[in-house]
């Protein structure tokens, strides 16, 4: 199966801009299904970005982050061709990891 994580990381020389889009329902626990039952909360809790062996960004998310969440940030350093490792884990213990090349 294709990765749930989409990443665009571009180096400008000095800084690397990272955008990520993740496929995840991010169910808040406040929405009912067609039968009127509450859909239990199901959301990503932590998302990490690792470059050169250290965390460059860490997100802690609650259920108020939108479905198929998006995040953008920048860090100093990072060269074209470097690896950027992205991982998430959700409140049910599911997780995914991918490694993207900085462009």
């Amino acid at each position: 199966m294709a990765s749930t994580i989409r990443v665009r990381a571009t180096s400008s020389g000095e800084t690397t801009e990272v955008q990520a889009l993740i496929q995840h329902p991010m169910d808040s626990g406040y929405v009912k299904d067609a039968k009127g039952d509450l859909i239990p909360p199901h959301f990503i809790q932590q998302l990490t970005f690792e470059h050169d062996g250290k965390n460059v960004f860490l997100a802690d998310w609650g259920p108020a982050v939108s479905k198929d969440p998006y995040v953008k940030f920048s860090f100093k350093g990072g060269k074209k061709g470097d690896d950027l490792k992205i991982s998430w884990v959700d409140n049910k213990g599911a997780s995914d990891t991918t490694t993207a090349k900085i462009q």
């Binding site: 460059v56 960004f57 860490l58 997100a59 860090f75």
Partner: peptide
Amino acid sequence: AFYLIPAGT
């Protein structure tokens, strides 16, 4: 949401 900003970010 809470974002940890390490040095350099």
